[in-house]
């Protein structure tokens, strides 16, 4: 039985081969007309940690799709060790970045906006794919994000005047309060607004001298991963911003429990009240400063941001100085 079937299978194979031969005999005449097919060069999206672009320590990636569910790219899926490395990098960068002059920080942020402009096309198409927007709407989002970034850049040397000042005291003292950066801030970026929302939460954290570990939108991390390429070429010291794409729950939990993270912005957990609560409980352990998610905020980021995000990650230092006679 098996022999028979083997025989019957052989026959068509032979005749196919024969057909192939006759085709190939004709082929030489047709060959010059064929145009070569160019193979796509697909981009490998990577994490951004300490100014470098590593793959996830775990080796994991996950599929990122557009709003229709079509595959766009594989994004690295960060593990807790990536989070640990990112916090170490952010801590290392903190003294330099917070010690830089406000003027210098503002300049660097402005430089980032300049570099973003040069990549308008790339960001517009990534935003359009991620959020299912028309090209015009995506372009408007991009414009708004760059404008917001520049707006925050301008605050670098002005926030002190607003958040600090000279206090009247009953005694022969100058009493001065100045805002100082909190330290390493873990930022869960909004889940819906992949770029405008991202810029709106990241810029206010770093402009005052904090360093950030950023967890971008879980389903649309590509604009954030591309932003890290801009950050790497804008004189921003390595480690000031670290980008960890992956599962918000997984990375967020490690960051919330991490003893060396000083503050946490839970904006990205706005739609998941249970997660937000868990993270807040874990963050309470070392008295992290936590910015609780504002459920209404995720989605529309076009309004006037105000300066609450700047003030959320500042500590007030007050000094008493005797007045000389």
């Amino acid at each position: 039985m098996s022999e028979k079937s083997a025989n019957t299978e052989k026959k068509p194979a032979k005749s196919e081969a024969a057909a192939g031969r006759t085709k190939s005999a004709k082929a030489p005449a047709a060959r010059p007309a064929r145009t070569p097919v160019r193979i796509d060069v697909l981009k490998t999206y990577k994490l951004f940690v300490g100014g470098k672009f590593p793959r996830s320590e775990s080796g994991r990636v996950y599929e990122v799709t557009d709003s229709q569910g079509n595959w766009l790219a594989n994004a690295p899926q960060s593990s807790r060790k990536d989070a640990r490395d990112a916090v170490v990098a952010a801590r290392k960068a903190f003294s330099g970045w917070s010690g830089a002059t406000a003027y210098n920080r503002g300049q660097i942020l402005y430089r980032i906006a300049e570099m973003l402009e040069g990549r308008r096309e790339q960001f517009t198409s990534e935003i359009a794919a991620a959020e299912g927007l028309s090209a015009a709407a995506a372009s408007a989002q991009f414009d708004a994000a760059v404008d917001r970034w520049v707006w925050y850049a301008g605050w670098s040397d002005k926030v002190t005047q607003v958040a600090g000042g000279a206090n009247p005291v009953a005694g022969p003292f100058f009493n001065l309060s100045t805002p100082e950066p909190t330290g390493v801030v873990a930022v869960l970026a909004p889940q819906e607004s992949s770029f405008l929302g991202l810029a709106s939460v990241l810029a206010p954290v770093i402009v005052t001298g904090n360093t950030a570990v950023l967890v971008p939108s879980e389903k649309a991390p590509l604009p954030a991963l591309s932003l890290s390429e801009v950050l790497a070429t804008s004189d921003l010291p390595g480690g000031v911003v670290n980008v960890l794409s992956g599962r918000t729950r997984e990375v967020g939990a490690t960051l919330a429990a991490h003893q060396d993270v000083n503050a946490m912005d839970l904006t990205g957990a706005a739609s998941d009240a249970e997660l937000a609560k868990e993270l807040e409980v874990a963050a309470a352990d070392n008295l992290k400063r936590v910015r609780r998610p504002d459920a209404a905020a995720d989605g529309d980021w076009s309004g006037d941001p105000g300066i609450s995000r700047l003030l959320a990650f500042l500590e007030t230092k007050t000094v008493w100085h005797p007045i000389g006679v």
Partner: peptide
């Protein structure tokens, strides 16, 4: 050692 005993990453503040 603190990481192993508490399950949370420690930092130079500790």
């Amino acid at each position: 050692r603190q990481k192993l005993s508490t399950g949370r990453y420690s930092g130079p503040d500790y």
